[in-house]
Nucleic acid binder design. Structure first.
Lengths: 261, 261
DNA sequence: CAAGCTAGTCCCAAATAATGGAACAAAAGT
DNA sequence: ACTTTTGTTCCATTATTTGGGACTAGCTTG
């Protein structure tokens, strides 16, 4: 008798479509949406119309394309300032970045998936797939694993059930059988390591950000490449990383930020 | 047989509630939402649950409050970069700000209401109510009036019907009877003036931003106070203002931005 | 420029989901 | 311990969503 991860009712379907349109990251034609929509043509069309009526999408009559609407722009901006750790954490992240001269990721969790909300790259930077607003699996990222490790048991079980267990590299965990023991260890150590589990050649050390009632509200990581450093080398970032995570957590405590789930 | 401005179906109701929660700008208790909700208790509760399930809201079990959810946070990146003029206009706005040394507002329109998407204040700045993400009435702001003036007739009629006609100062238009002739004049002149219609002591000159097919996608204004300048004085900003608006429009043409409506 | 094709829109009887008054439960106050 | 306030759930009724398919607009091709 558990809650379903997927849609409840019409609202769920509409939001699913909204998400799809927005995720395109560009204007889209009806037929493009229809291709990825799990709903029949008439239903898809009607839901898009509703969303457009509601200002969540805008329809360009010349080009016949849908784009995110102004209502979504306005609401999501409020959401960003209120519920993303980025504005609050920004100065601390910048200080850490200056300190370690490596890429820093700040992430939060949305239903078992990692959302990157801030990223700083040093001048000498290389590219990782993470980019603000991007959603990645939790089972194969440093920030994801550390949030899984520290969230409460019920949420963790649910989150693990929802993982894709997609294998990105030979090191990627493919099931909770191998991940669970590691989570135990992460809880003991206080930090998680990404051992090239998401991208070949990319490693990281990640610490949880704990808000009020020591619940996980996000995670912070120092990311580098195996060309520059080894797993052993990045261990040295641990004190600065944990200190910064604690500072951010301290600032955030007392504010209700979304709990990782 | 016209379209209704208000809610269609369950999706409309859910979005209305979402909007309310987000608009609070802080975490809210169920009872606070219920107070402003037009729906009965059970319905309000169920819709909030649905939104929470969907990740559009997050519920803090300790504090018993709702906050914007991570799903909305994630969408904000995409929505902002795609549909707000701010990223694209930023350099032009900065140049104009440096040129005139006055406050600049960049706005777009959501169903007859003005949304401020960017604002720059000179060091010597004073405070106006406008702040990015804020929504204001169109009938009493420079950017609002100029967008109304230049949008197509059908949309304009609909937008005017939706105005609150709230009187903020003695100069505020209280009905379309007085506003319509001014819109005519604005169309002829190419710019609109805010003559202390929204805030006592605040005046502005605003120009429309026209995208492809010369449709209004936004507006730009130079704002100052009557302590510093007169309505006649700010006329001198017109060339720079219009030039900048044209530059932004030029950049935006070819991209489908939400049309003012 | 008409015919053919594809993309987009609309209709309506059946199926399904939303509704909300009222009862109930859980906190908070006294 | 009791009262009040706040939050949650139930379920028969009611209203909305659904989607196959027909239709229309817009584009392409012979």
């Amino acid at each position: 008798m558990n809650k379903h991860v997927t849609s409840d009712g019409t609202v769920g379907k509409a939001l699913e479509l909204l998400d799809m349109v927005v995720a395109f990251g560009r204007s889209v034609r009806f037929s493009e949406v229809l291709e990825v929509s799990p709903f029949p043509k008439a239903t898809t069309h009607r839901l898009l119309q509703t969303l457009t009526n509601q200002g969540m999408l805008a329809f360009d009559e010349d080009r016949h394309v849908y784009v995110p609407g102004m209502r979504l722009v306005r609401m999501s901006r409020h959401a960003w300032t209120q519920s993303s750790l980025a504005p609050l954490a920004q100065p601390f992240v910048a200080a850490l970045a200056a300190d370690v001269s490596e890429t820093i990721h700040l992430a939060q969790m949305e239903r078992g998936r990692v959302i990157f909300v801030e990223k700083t790259t040093p001048k000498t930077g290389f590219k990782t797939m993470a980019t603000p607003g991007r959603r990645s699996p939790a089972h194969c990222t440093g920030v994801g694993k550390v949030m899984l490790a520290f969230m409460d048991a019920a949420r963790r079980t649910e989150a693990l059930d929802g993982q894709s267990w997609e294998g990105f590299t030979p090191n990627t965990h493919r099931s909770s059988d191998t991940l669970l023991p590691e989570l135990e260890q992460i809880r003991a150590e206080g930090v998680a390591f990404d051992r090239e589990e998401h991208e070949q050649g990319i490693i990281s050390i990640a610490a949880p950000i704990l808000g009020g009632s020591s619940r996980v509200i996000g995670a912070l990581s120092v990311v580098t490449s195996t060309f520059r450093m080894s797993l052993k080398d990045i261990e040295k970032f641990r004190p600065a990383l944990q200190r910064t995570a604690a500072q951010i957590g301290g600032e955030a405590a007392g504010w209700p930020y979304p709990i990782a789930q």
